[in-house]
Simulated scan of single mutants.
Amino acid sequence: MLNSTLYYTMLTRDYSKTLANTAADPTVQRQTAYFQANIDKVKSVDDLLNNSKLYNYVMTAFGLSDMTYAKGLIRKVLTEGVSSSKSLTNTLNDPRYKALATAFNFAANGAATTSSTSLQQTTISNFDEQTLETNVGKTSPGAQMALYFQRMAPTIASAYNILGDKTLLSVVQTAFGLSPSMSQQGIDQQAQTIGKLVNIADLQKPAYLQTIIERFTANYDVNNRSTTSTTPTNALQVSSPGISQSLLLSIASLPQGGS
């Protein structure tokens, strides 16, 4: 596997170009073209759920591809919306569902929901990011986790949001050397521990966020030195959006310090 610190750095050096390369992939282009051509035809929650291509695209875009089977749950999330504190979305304490229900707010906007240019652009942008992260994960799980943390950071309002997301929690645990066994503690005690280590409000600041990510990737690479110190030939055959094969070979030849 590739050193996650170096891979993440290369991906984010010109992140907009990396995303553009992902969007230009023929498979992604076909999926996005179908979404653009058909999303206006969706006038209700059931219209969305009954079109498997659109449904899968949207679920992927909002990080819920692992929940595509749970149509009953998604129907309730989209039907109830976000305005009531008692809605399912607001009781799940998972920013993915809230982002989905906020964007596809059928409860408030009805049949006009999907005609929103902002909704369409947001969904496409999200889909590109999710696809990028998935592809990166095939070569460097650590870099994938770092990209995920970077993307989700603006949605983190409390330590409980971190505790409710296994990837966010793993990043924080790795960055600060916390044992996974901390999950055996009470939830409030865990939140207190994380709150002392991570300034939640400062995650909105790029410099502070970058510091957390750098701590994570450095520790991740140390913890996984046996897999990050060498690069198998087949790893270089994986499609890596935004990075050419020759550049991957250059990255792989760099020492762990990366200079």
Rank of each mutant, 00 (worst) to 15 (best):
L2D: 14
N3G: 03
S4L: 06
Y8N: 14
M10E: 14
D14H: 11
D14Q: 13
Y15I: 14
L19K: 13
N21C: 00
T22I: 06
P26A: 03
Q29H: 03
Q29G: 04
Q31Y: 05
T32H: 01
Q36T: 07
D40F: 00
K41W: 05
L48K: 06
L48V: 06
L48T: 12
L48F: 02
V58C: 09
D66E: 13
Y69Q: 03
A70E: 10
G72I: 06
T79A: 13
E80Y: 08
G81D: 06
S84V: 00
S85R: 08
K86T: 07
K86C: 01
T89F: 13
N93L: 15
R96T: 00
K98C: 03
A99S: 14
N109C: 11
A111F: 03
A111T: 00
A112Q: 05
A112T: 09
Q121N: 14
S125A: 15
N126Y: 03
T131L: 00
E133A: 10
K138H: 07
A143I: 01
A143F: 08
Q144E: 05
I156C: 09
S158Q: 02
Y160S: 06
N161I: 04
L168D: 06
V171N: 11
G177A: 12
S179Q: 06
M182E: 10
M182A: 00
M182G: 02
S183D: 12
G186W: 08
I187P: 03
Q190T: 08
Q190C: 00
I194Q: 03
I200N: 09
L203A: 02
P206L: 06
P206V: 05
A207N: 05
A207M: 03
A207V: 10
A218K: 15
N219F: 08
N219I: 02
Y220Q: 08
D221I: 11
D221P: 09
V222K: 15
N223S: 13
N223T: 09
R225S: 09
T231D: 07
T231E: 08
P241F: 12
I243E: 03
Q245N: 11
S250H: 11
I251P: 01
L254T: 08
Q256G: 00
G257H: 10
G258V: 05
